[in-house]
Amino acid sequence: MDISQSVIMTIMTAATPLLLAALGELIVERSGVLNLGLEGMMATAAACGFAMAIVSGSTTVGVLCAVLSAMALAGLFGFVTLSLGANQVASGLALTIFGLGLSGLIGAGFVGTSRPPLEPLFIEGLTDLPGFGKIIFGQDFFVYTSWILILAILIFLHLTRAGLTLRCIGENHHSAHAIGLPVLKTRFRAVLFGGACAGLAGAYLSLVYTPFWSPGMTAGRGWIALSLVVFAAWRAERVLLGALLFGGATVLQLHAQAASLGLPSQLLSAVPYLATLIALVFMSLGRKSGTVTPGSLGQPFVPER
């Protein structure tokens, strides 16, 4: 493997957790729900996934548990905001705080543990899929999944009836309800999907990216993913761009730190976050035609009875 390939690999590795979480949130927001609990769901999933992988000795079990735990939190959020019509911003913030706390509790017994080296980070079978070389596309299950997700989401949103329904509900839930679209059911499914994606992102952090558990290891990636969705104007292909940019900046600053340029390492660590935000702001400044914010974003929908 030459250097440029290894750089591409590391960029993709850094981009993947953001991409996964942001794609899930994109679907949630396109349905008109704002779930600010991304960071909490990712943290809980990271802790759960790592703990279960250690306990069971199986990465697959770990990933499954990570996804399920994040979906459980998303389900709770969905119940509170959709069934009870609670404020989405407050509930999302509460979910983040709750999720971070819960992750500390779950992971408490596993701090300092690292995964047995024998345990493969790759899911067998997918790596060997015909037509994909091991070097570029054979990275791991998560990267692979994130690429499929982008395609699937683009097709879903623009070519399927369910996608049209979801966009309608996000744009104007009163109209959607009036023409007989199932607002709350669709939103609940979207929230669960968002949870599953956050779960994958969390599992990736603790099982692949840095294969150990430490409290606060999500390090604000949930928030970056949230802002990615907004600045990417709720479009999947732009989310990819933003995530790769973040990955690129991460790798760059690691190299900068290694080259010891004399800049404080804390400052360099902040570079990916700053660079992504700045680039995304410029991207959103450039768009002119048509407002793209889902019209009902963040508003609770309570049907009259």
Binding site: L164, R167, C168, E171, N172, S175, A178, G290, V292, G295
Partner: peptide, 11 residues
């Protein structure tokens, strides 16, 4: 046909 249209502006 409703008085307030059930339409989606961006579609």
């Amino acid at each position: 046909v409703f008085q307030q249209f059930s339409l989606f502006e961006n579609l």
